[in-house]
């Protein structure tokens, strides 16, 4: 047990955990202070719509959590043995859980349960996308895909009849099953991307080549 604790401490120190904690604290403070502020987006149809700022906060929390997987010492970490991998997975699960706990703690007093669910769902979706993005371009660029989602979410969020589209997870109610489906899909894709190490990818490609 002391081994694991020390490993976690080593890992967190090398992955700028303090910076991430400060970032989360600032975001939660923004959420509490300005969460209700409305964001007016130009959107498809007629002018503007308004989404509360708090619906977008999980994006930044998710990007910070996944960005913590990156480290200045990634060239050394590429050669790490299995203990590192265990700690890495424990840390990302812990970071996402901590972000979720912070969000729930901050929102439980100011928002109804449906909004809390909506925010948790957004967090899970953006975590999945950040993992996918990090695997594609490196952990420091885990923000690319989550930030890209802002475009459809703020531009095509309303259909021709003035309703929020089924996939708009920042505005559909917390109980919307299609959006939870997106959350599950995103997490599976992100988890899969994280599991797809160069060796696994290589095995897959070799098997593919053999089958042809």
């Amino acid at each position: 047990m002391p081994d694991l604790r020390e490993s976690l401490i080593d890992y967190l120190r090398a992955h700028r955990f303090r910076g991430i904690a400060v970032g989360w604290a600032v975001l939660i403070a923004c959420d509490v202070a300005f969460g209700s502020a409305r964001l007016d987006f130009p959107f498809s149809g007629s002018g503007s719509s308004a989404t509360p700022l708090r619906h977008e906060i999980p994006l930044a929390l998710a990007v910070l959590a996944v960005g913590g997987l990156g480290s200045a010492m990634d060239s050394l970490e590429e050669t790490a043995a299995s203990g590192f991998r265990r700690v890495e997975i424990s840390c990302i699960v812990g970071a996402v859980s901590a972000a979720a706990a912070l969000l729930v703690a901050a929102e439980a007093f100011v928002s109804p349960m449906d909004t809390v669910l909506l925010l948790l769902r957004g967090l899970l979706i953006w975590v999945g996308l950040a993992l996918l993005s990090g695997r594609a371009w490196g952990w420091r660029f885990s923000w690319i895909l989550p930030l890209v989602t802002l475009f459809p979410l703020t531009y095509w969020q309303i259909d021709g009849l003035g309703r929020f589209r089924w996939w708009d997870w920042t505005d559909q109610p917390g109980s919307s099953m299609p959006c939870w489906g997106i959350a599950v899909g995103s997490l599976l894709a992100g988890g899969g991307a994280m599991a797809l190490t160069p060796w696994r990818l290589n095995r897959f490609l070799r098997a593919f080549r053999r089958s042809r």
């Binding site: 080593d10 090398a14 010492m73 060239s75 050394l76 790490a80």
Partner: peptide, 22 residues
């Protein structure tokens, strides 16, 4: 070329590598 966390001491850096190696 290898990166390092600038605030790590030499000891921390080498020990981190030891931990990475198992």
């Amino acid at each position: 070329e290898f990166g390092y966390y600038p605030s790590f001491s030499v000891y921390d850096f080498v020990r981190y590598s030891a931990w990475l190696r198992g």
